[in-house]
Design a protein around this nucleic acid. Structure first.
Lengths: 197, 197
DNA sequence: AGGAACAGAATGAACGTTCAGTCCGAAACG
DNA sequence: CGTTTCGGACTGAACGTTCATTCTGTTCCT
């Protein structure tokens, strides 16, 4: 058996366990997802999980890293680094917002894990670095062209991130509170108005 | 013993237990705050807690309600319902943001409890209703005067709330990421620009 | 004295983790 | 080619720990 298929076989079960964990945490919360139930949902014995993850804590951390990576990739979908500042802003954050809306399970998970002490702040920062790289370039260009407020990048990123995240959360948890449909473009306009000079 | 002092005496111990719970959850997270430790920090026996709260779950819910109420009150500090729209906006959200910055423990708590299945979405909505009442009036007036975008109130509130909440969180958890000091007024300007027509 | 409030040891359930044994495919051997 | 041996992936019952909750005896107040 070559390395490739060995890796594949291993990855598959690992992936099953990660998926099972994701489903359970999203549905019931971190504290009511016993390893025995993860095992059941992943169709394996409890002991098997420990062949792939040293502890439950590590399992959860790996899940978080996996999620973040997938999300960051979605944000960069069709991102044209040579396009204009405003267009790139809409592309990036539009991808982000749509991802959150279309993957409520993952949205819930990221929220739960981001609030949990199971994930250290350092891990969170590390996981988001790739996302921030593209944004830093974007904002630098925007500031230079005087399109964007001259505030620290972290402020511009954090406020936009916060707005869209909270909106996606509200729409998922209390859709009945929104009498009219909410257009993603309205939100992006709102975020753009916030940071534009 | 009259009703008043009976209430007072009871409230004091109840309060101690709530405070102890708040400290422990904020420091270690919901899952690592055993009742025995709550009792120790509240300087009482474990059994005593059950004289004031039926279960741990109820204790946590009461804590959440208490926190929300205190915070909502702070937001209304010095709120002059007859002042102009923009001024009221700055007053309300300025109070909110400052409260979050100055009470990091409570901020962390609200975040943890808001993400936890221990608190139902219904409870969360109920708790925030008083806050929303003032804001609804404010936004209606702003829209009428064409100062504010004609979007659903929930959108305007949620995005502002999200921005400020996320900023307070970032500043608390990763202060080193902000090279320059962040002026609250800069943030409020940013939020105002977001929602202004 | 009598009753309410309290403390903390006792209880039992739930959970993460371990480990002794099973299973299965691949190599080694006849 | 058929049989045996081997190794490691896998299982799930069992273990020890931790925790919420209860219970029983004690203290405090009137």
């Amino acid at each position: 058996m070559n390395v490739q298929s060995e890796t594949r076989r291993t990855m598959d079960k690992r992936q099953q366990i990660l998926e099972a964990t994701a489903d359970l945490i999203a549905e019931q919360g971190l504290h009511s997802c016993p390893m025995a139930m993860v095992a059941k949902h992943a169709c394996c014995g409890a002991g098997t999980i420990y062949r792939y993850f040293e502890t439950k804590e590590e399992l959860v951390q790996q899940l978080f890293l996996h999620l973040t990576e997938v999300m960051a990739n979605h944000c960069m979908n069709g991102y044209d680094a040579s396009a204009g500042v405003k267009l790139r802003f809409y592309s990036f954050w539009g991808n982000f917002y749509r991802y959150m809306l279309e993957h409520p399970r993952n949205r819930t998970l990221m929220e739960q894990l981001s609030a949990s002490p199971a994930i250290s702040e350092l891990q969170r920062e590390e996981a988001l670095k790739p996302m921030n790289k593209a944004l830093t370039l974007l904002l630098a260009e925007g500031k230079q062209q005087q399109l964007i407020k001259n505030l620290p990048d972290e402020v511009l990123i954090t406020t936009t991130f916060g707005s869209l995240t909270m909106m996606a959360k509200k729409l998922q948890l209390s859709p009945q509170m929104f009498s009219q449909a909410v257009q993603p473009d309205d939100l992006l306009n709102l975020c753009w108005d916030a940071i534009k000079a």
